[in-house]
Computed example of a mutant assay.
Amino acid sequence: MKTSLTRRTYTDLPAHPLSVSIARTYVARILADWERAELTDDAQLVMSELLTNAIKATQSARQPNDLTHGMSAGYECDPWLGLHQVSDDVVLEVWDCNRNPPKLRAPESWEVGGRGLQVVNDLATSWGYRWPKTGGKIVWAMLAVSP
């Protein structure tokens, strides 16, 4: 059943690995409130991957003497996340202050990391990124309710 409902919510979190667990709980609560609980498992996994990447990008942007990522002294750099429901689809967004675009990788079997965006690519209907005028980047992924 298609609805014309549009909902949005945002929150910011510290650039710390524990924020991923908080984000998973936040996503589950919001999707339950929006009666989209069937998307919870995929949404939590996608949000975990996007936020983990944002935390790494934020830590990279905070390196001393490195202003190539668009971060200046005193600039707030903690990531934020957003969820949007438009009709039956849900869009997950994560902002970080690093301007470098995300890269879909094909890591070797022995590599420990580098598979996060592949997970997002496999679970999301579509995904991408954009550079807001305010700086940083937003990586987004859309999840659709299966018919």
Rank of each mutant, 00 (worst) to 15 (best):
M1E: 11
M1N: 08
K2C: 00
K2R: 11
S4N: 15
L5Y: 01
R7Q: 15
R7P: 00
R7C: 14
R8C: 07
R8K: 10
R8P: 00
T9N: 00
T9S: 05
Y10E: 15
T11W: 01
D12K: 06
P14V: 09
H16F: 02
I22G: 03
I22A: 12
I22W: 05
I22F: 02
A23W: 05
T25H: 06
Y26E: 08
R29P: 00
L31I: 06
L31V: 07
D33Q: 14
D33I: 02
W34Q: 07
W34H: 06
W34N: 07
R36H: 06
D41H: 03
D42F: 02
D42A: 13
L45E: 08
V46D: 02
M47T: 10
M47G: 04
I55S: 05
I55C: 06
Q59T: 09
S60Q: 13
S60R: 12
S60E: 14
A61M: 02
R62F: 01
R62Q: 14
Q63T: 12
P64Q: 04
L67A: 13
L67T: 11
T68F: 03
G70Y: 04
S72M: 08
A73K: 07
E76H: 12
C77T: 14
D78P: 01
L81M: 15
G82T: 04
G82H: 04
L83D: 07
S87N: 13
D88W: 00
D89T: 07
V91A: 09
V91D: 09
L92R: 05
L92C: 08
L92W: 09
E93P: 02
V94I: 09
W95R: 09
W95S: 08
N98E: 06
P101L: 08
P101Q: 11
P102L: 10
K103Q: 14
K103D: 10
L104A: 05
L104D: 04
R105Q: 15
A106H: 13
A106C: 05
P107C: 10
S109E: 15
W110Q: 09
V112W: 07
G113F: 13
G113Y: 10
G113W: 08
R115H: 12
R115M: 10
L117N: 04
V119T: 14
D122N: 11
D122M: 02
T125F: 01
T125L: 07
T125I: 00
W127M: 01
G128L: 06
R130S: 10
W131V: 12
P132Y: 06
K133G: 13
T134V: 12
G135R: 03
G135A: 05
G135V: 03
G136S: 07
G136C: 08
G136P: 03
G136R: 01
G136D: 07
V139P: 03
W140T: 05
A141G: 01
M142Y: 00
M142D: 01
L143W: 07
P147A: 10
P147K: 03
